[in-house]
Design a protein around this nucleic acid. Structure first.
Lengths: 322, 322
DNA sequence: AAGCAGTTTGAACATATGTGCAAGGAGTCA
DNA sequence: TGACTCCTTGCACATATGTTCAAACTGCTT
């Protein structure tokens, strides 16, 4: 396998940089750039495309503050949360919705995460979608930490969750702290014991010092239940127990009711997600939500004050405001 | 005349915003966007183009620090100045060079100027070129101040200089403080007297508090002399005097020698540009240079420590480093 | 209501950009 | 060296985007 990281990549990158300059700063046509770079137009097209996906070119959209959408204002008023409403047509499918919101988040995430920061990330279909599109950004001494375990009765879950976290870690060049435990322990005391292990202490401490948390909300009892609820993590008895406790959703497999309360939900004693108080101590808490089936769960998360920045598709946002 | 600033513009702007989202964040095709916005593809093309030129969409290029060009490093070492080398092919004409450097500067200027700042701006062909392309950016309580008078023996010069400054002022929504005096007084004592006027004091004070200064360098005795030297601002005797004093150039019509010294240059006593010490007190001093004919003048400006950030075309940069 | 000046619009055309593919190149291994 | 694999390149084609122009529209004025 060819692995010319040392020079050839630099060479290519610097060409990409020049091309980007000429294209985005000087408005040259690709054909003109090709001439200056002594290559073909197609190659320039490819260079530019690399420049974009590798985060060399950074495209931002800066809303004049007076133009924040009506819904965004409404959400700010009602929930004290900065909303980023992603425009998606009403007739779009849930898959479309998810994909488009995820893409938007992926593109803007670099705005929130920088060198020397710690970001906690959950896992699930939404995070998976986001992870596939993150625009890379070079950071130093940055750290990503997994928010909750991902093993279940059938597998260690390492593959799925890890693949997701790995993508973020690569995109930012950040160290990755995995969390190789089941999503739920069978016995609460096992968790208590395990939490005292030194390796775990380090991880928990990181979680306690997060600068950013990135997660979605799970919705158990909707027509489109989330990954955790159908992936073999919970058995029927457990689901019934959640239902009985009037649980409306979860963040990183920590469950809550619609009013944001968590007391007396037994599963939380066995789960591996971060205490909500830990989450609430995190300065920036980014929640990504798409699809109306998540509205109830979202209400709970808002009531529990888990969110500072909300990315949400347009019609779900409207639904949220009734 | 139709002047639908109040609502229609908002309406259009918000459409442009949505379109920009869909295009740049979600990678939809213009055709798809047209469908979502219930309009034609052409209109979307126009919306996007508006979004770009109005600064709604902000495209930046972020060089990985380890990829700053060799010349930029060299300039930093030799002159302690941050260079931004603009790629321009060697065979490009001087007009091309100027245009391309100007365009690059125009696009990135917003990075340097923000709310509550004061920016001093000179005038001349380079500033003219830059002014034509500045990407707008909304700021509050920002102030632009003209660095030197623009009147000459033939006209008040208000038109030319003012047009330039006006463009910057519009682009940033900044207040504009003009400087309605000749470029050079005939008699130094007139200047001294005038400088005591209250209106002038205010302007000079602003200059003293600038956060950013934006200027080029003039080059009198090259094959491509700058605006000041051919526009009727100076008569033959004066040019001879400059030549005798070994002047290599000027910044905002303040003249200096190649070693950066200014003592004993009589014209400086009658000119209206800012004292170089005032300039040197300005935290950010952006100089835009294109074309080899300006190299000597640039050397003088560097020797005088007038520059903190230098925008320069590639071959001139190489020439500078010999 | 009709006329007017200045905009905005979409269809049609003109360009510019993206991509599949076959050919060539560069590294690796036997 | 030659066979092999994996990348990169430029051509040709397929799409996507930009721009011109005539028609429709808008807000005013007569």
């Amino acid at each position: 396998m060819t692995h010319p990281d040392d020079l050839s990549l630099s060479e290519r990158t610097s060409d990409a940089l020049t091309a980007a300059h000429l294209y985005y700063m000087q408005d040259l046509t690709m054909e003109a750039i090709a001439r200056e770079l002594h290559t073909s137009r197609s190659s320039v097209s490819r260079l530019l495309s690399q420049a974009r996906t590798s985060g060399l070119v950074d495209i931002q959209i800066r809303s004049p503050l007076d133009a924040t959408s009506r819904v965004e204002k409404l959400i700010l008023d009602r929930f004290k949360v900065t909303a980023h409403v992603v425009p998606v047509p009403d007739h779009a499918s849930d898959v479309d919705r998810l994909e488009r919101v995820a893409l938007s988040v992926a593109r803007i995430l670099g705005e929130f995460f920088d060198s020397n920061m710690i970001m906690g990330i959950a896992w699930g279909s939404t995070m998976n979608a986001v992870s596939r599109h993150v625009t890379p950004k070079r950071t130093h001494n940055a750290q990503i930490v997994q928010l909750n375990g991902a093993g279940n009765t059938r597998s260690t879950g390492l593959d799925y969750a890890n693949e997701i976290l790995q993508r973020f870690s690569n995109a930012f060049g950040a160290r990755l702290e995995q969390f190789p435990v089941p999503t739920f322990f069978d016995d609460p005391s096992t968790r208590t014991a395990y939490w005292r292990e030194r390796g775990l202490r380090r991880l928990l401490e990181m979680q306690g010092n997060m600068d950013v948390a990135l997660f979605s909300v799970g919705s158990p009892f909707s027509n489109v239940p989330s990954h955790v609820y159908v992936g073999g993590y919970l058995d029927d008895d457990e689901l019934t127990a959640l239902s009985d406790a009037e649980v409306v959703g979860d963040v990183a497999t920590v469950f809550y009711r619609v009013d944001g309360s968590t007391d007396g939900i037994p599963l939380n004693d066995r789960g591996t997600g971060p205490e909500l108080s830990v989450l609430r101590r995190t300065p920036r808490r980014i929640c990504v939500v798409s699809g109306k089936s998540k509205v109830d769960s979202l209400r709970g998360a808002l009531a529990a004050n888990l969110i500072t920045d909300l990315f949400i598709d347009e019609s779900t946002a409207r639904e949220l405001c009734e």
